[in-house]
Protein backbone atom coordinates (compact mmCIF):
# COMPACT_ATOMS: atom_id res chain seq x y z
CA UNK A 1 0.00 0.00 0.00
CA UNK A 2 1.34 3.45 -0.88
CA UNK A 3 1.86 6.05 1.80
CA UNK A 4 -1.26 7.91 2.87
CA UNK A 5 -1.97 11.38 4.23
CA UNK A 6 -5.14 13.02 5.56
CA UNK A 7 -6.61 15.93 3.61
CA UNK A 8 -6.95 17.76 6.94
CA UNK A 9 -6.64 17.05 10.65
CA UNK A 10 -9.62 17.35 12.96
CA UNK A 11 -12.32 16.61 10.40
CA UNK A 12 -12.80 12.94 11.25
CA UNK A 13 -11.26 10.43 13.68
CA UNK A 14 -8.39 8.48 12.08
CA UNK A 15 -6.88 5.96 12.18
CA UNK A 16 -9.90 4.03 13.34
CA UNK A 17 -11.86 0.91 12.43
CA UNK A 18 -15.00 2.98 12.89
CA UNK A 19 -14.13 6.55 11.85
CA UNK A 20 -16.49 9.38 12.80
CA UNK A 21 -16.90 12.96 11.66
CA UNK A 22 -16.09 15.59 14.28
CA UNK A 23 -18.61 18.40 14.66
CA UNK A 24 -19.54 21.00 17.23
CA UNK A 25 -22.59 20.87 19.44
CA UNK A 26 -24.00 24.04 21.01
CA UNK A 27 -25.83 23.03 24.21
CA UNK A 28 -27.72 26.33 24.50
CA UNK A 29 -29.50 25.92 21.14
CA UNK A 30 -29.16 22.17 20.60
CA UNK A 31 -27.67 22.91 17.17
CA UNK A 32 -24.97 20.61 15.77
CA UNK A 33 -22.70 21.74 12.94
CA UNK A 34 -19.99 20.14 10.80
CA UNK A 35 -17.04 20.71 10.72
CA UNK A 36 -16.22 22.24 14.10
CA UNK A 37 -17.11 25.92 14.54
CA UNK A 38 -16.63 28.48 17.26
CA UNK A 39 -20.05 30.14 17.23
CA UNK A 40 -23.59 28.84 16.92
CA UNK A 41 -25.19 30.07 13.65
CA UNK A 42 -28.58 30.19 15.34
CA UNK A 43 -27.87 31.98 18.63
CA UNK A 44 -24.24 33.14 18.25
CA UNK A 45 -23.46 31.25 21.47
CA UNK A 46 -19.77 30.50 21.78
CA UNK A 47 -20.24 27.70 24.26
CA UNK A 48 -19.41 24.70 22.10
CA UNK A 49 -18.37 21.11 22.65
CA UNK A 50 -16.82 18.68 20.19
CA UNK A 51 -19.15 15.91 19.14
CA UNK A 52 -18.49 12.68 17.24
CA UNK A 53 -21.26 12.28 14.68
CA UNK A 54 -23.18 9.05 14.01
CA UNK A 55 -21.56 6.87 11.35
CA UNK A 56 -24.85 5.92 9.73
CA UNK A 57 -27.64 7.98 8.24
CA UNK A 58 -29.94 8.30 5.27
CA UNK A 59 -29.34 10.03 1.94
CA UNK A 60 -31.14 13.42 1.92
CA UNK A 61 -30.11 14.52 -1.58
CA UNK A 62 -27.40 13.79 -4.12
CA UNK A 63 -25.78 14.62 -7.43
CA UNK A 64 -22.93 13.32 -9.58
CA UNK A 65 -19.95 15.59 -10.26
CA UNK A 66 -19.77 14.99 -14.00
CA UNK A 67 -16.79 17.15 -15.03
CA UNK A 68 -13.33 17.70 -13.52
CA UNK A 69 -13.45 20.57 -10.99
CA UNK A 70 -10.95 23.38 -11.49
CA UNK A 71 -7.61 22.95 -9.69
CA UNK A 72 -7.38 24.97 -7.48
CA UNK A 73 -9.36 24.68 -5.33
CA UNK A 74 -9.72 20.93 -6.16
CA UNK A 75 -6.44 19.06 -5.63
CA UNK A 76 -7.22 16.20 -8.01
CA UNK A 77 -4.97 16.34 -11.06
CA UNK A 78 -6.63 13.86 -13.43
CA UNK A 79 -6.85 14.90 -17.06
CA UNK A 80 -10.38 15.38 -18.39
CA UNK A 81 -9.94 12.03 -20.18
CA UNK A 82 -9.05 10.17 -16.98
CA UNK A 83 -11.53 11.96 -14.73
CA UNK A 84 -14.05 9.65 -13.08
CA UNK A 85 -17.34 11.28 -12.04
CA UNK A 86 -17.99 11.07 -8.30
CA UNK A 87 -21.16 11.21 -6.26
CA UNK A 88 -21.84 14.02 -3.80
CA UNK A 89 -24.67 14.04 -1.33
CA UNK A 90 -26.18 15.23 1.91
CA UNK A 91 -26.63 12.53 4.55
CA UNK A 92 -29.05 13.03 7.42
CA UNK A 93 -27.55 11.72 10.67
CA UNK A 94 -30.61 11.15 12.83
CA UNK A 95 -32.15 14.40 13.98
CA UNK A 96 -28.73 15.94 14.72
CA UNK A 97 -27.36 17.28 11.48
CA UNK A 98 -27.28 16.75 7.70
CA UNK A 99 -23.68 16.59 6.40
CA UNK A 100 -22.30 17.09 2.91
CA UNK A 101 -19.98 14.40 1.61
CA UNK A 102 -18.51 12.68 -1.38
CA UNK A 103 -20.23 9.36 -2.07
CA UNK A 104 -18.43 6.15 -2.95
CA UNK A 105 -20.99 5.47 -5.69
CA UNK A 106 -21.44 7.42 -8.91
CA UNK A 107 -24.02 5.41 -10.83
CA UNK A 108 -27.43 7.15 -10.63
CA UNK A 109 -29.10 3.74 -10.81
CA UNK A 110 -27.52 2.82 -7.46
CA UNK A 111 -28.56 6.00 -5.66
CA UNK A 112 -31.86 7.08 -4.21
CA UNK A 113 -33.00 9.54 -1.59
CA UNK A 114 -33.68 7.76 1.72
CA UNK A 115 -31.15 4.95 1.24
CA UNK A 116 -29.04 3.98 4.25
CA UNK A 117 -25.45 5.25 4.17
CA UNK A 118 -22.32 4.70 6.26
CA UNK A 119 -19.20 6.80 6.69
CA UNK A 120 -15.90 5.47 5.34
CA UNK A 121 -12.43 6.92 4.71
CA UNK A 122 -11.20 6.77 1.12
CA UNK A 123 -8.30 8.00 -1.03
CA UNK A 124 -9.43 10.56 -3.62
CA UNK A 125 -6.23 12.14 -4.97
CA UNK A 126 -2.45 11.73 -5.16
CA UNK A 127 -0.35 14.56 -3.75
CA UNK A 128 2.89 15.99 -5.16
CA UNK A 129 4.92 13.44 -3.17
CA UNK A 130 2.97 10.52 -4.59
CA UNK A 131 0.98 9.87 -1.42
CA UNK A 132 -2.70 8.96 -1.42
CA UNK A 133 -4.79 11.76 0.09
CA UNK A 134 -7.61 10.49 2.31
CA UNK A 135 -10.96 12.08 2.96
CA UNK A 136 -14.30 10.96 4.39
CA UNK A 137 -17.10 9.71 2.17
CA UNK A 138 -20.40 7.91 2.57
CA UNK A 139 -21.09 4.47 1.12
CA UNK A 140 -24.39 2.63 0.71
CA UNK A 141 -24.83 0.20 3.62
CA UNK A 142 -24.32 -3.36 2.43
CA UNK A 143 -26.54 -6.03 3.91
CA UNK A 144 -24.63 -9.27 3.45
CA UNK A 145 -27.60 -11.43 4.43
CA UNK A 146 -29.39 -10.62 1.17
CA UNK A 147 -26.41 -9.48 -0.87
CA UNK A 148 -28.05 -6.24 -1.91
CA UNK A 149 -27.98 -2.59 -0.97
CA UNK A 150 -30.53 -1.61 1.63
Amino acid sequence: MSEQVLVAEGVFTWPSDEPQLIGSHFPESGVTVFPRAGACPKTASRVAEDVLLPRRGTLWSWTIQGFPPKNPPYIGTESPKDFKPYGVGYIQLGDQVIVESRLTVSDPAQIEIGMEMEMVVVPFAIDAEGREVLTYAFAPVQHPENGANS
Binding site: V7, V11, S61, W62, T63, Q65, P69, Y74, V88, F124
Partner: peptide, 20 residues
Protein backbone atom coordinates in the same frame (compact mmCIF):
# COMPACT_ATOMS: atom_id res chain seq x y z
CA UNK B 1 -10.27 20.77 2.67
CA UNK B 2 -13.75 21.65 1.39
CA UNK B 3 -12.23 22.90 -1.85
CA UNK B 4 -9.45 20.26 -1.88
CA UNK B 5 -11.94 17.39 -1.92
CA UNK B 6 -14.03 18.67 -4.82
CA UNK B 7 -17.06 20.01 -2.95
CA UNK B 8 -16.55 23.70 -3.81
CA UNK B 9 -18.78 23.81 -6.89
CA UNK B 10 -21.95 25.85 -7.22
CA UNK B 11 -23.17 23.32 -9.79
CA UNK B 12 -23.33 20.58 -7.13
CA UNK B 13 -25.54 22.72 -4.92
CA UNK B 14 -27.96 23.38 -7.74
CA UNK B 15 -28.07 19.69 -8.64
CA UNK B 16 -28.76 18.62 -5.06
CA UNK B 17 -31.32 21.33 -4.34
CA UNK B 18 -33.46 20.48 -7.37
CA UNK B 19 -32.92 16.73 -6.83
CA UNK B 20 -34.48 17.03 -3.39
Amino acid sequence: WYGDTGLMLTTQFFGMKIQR
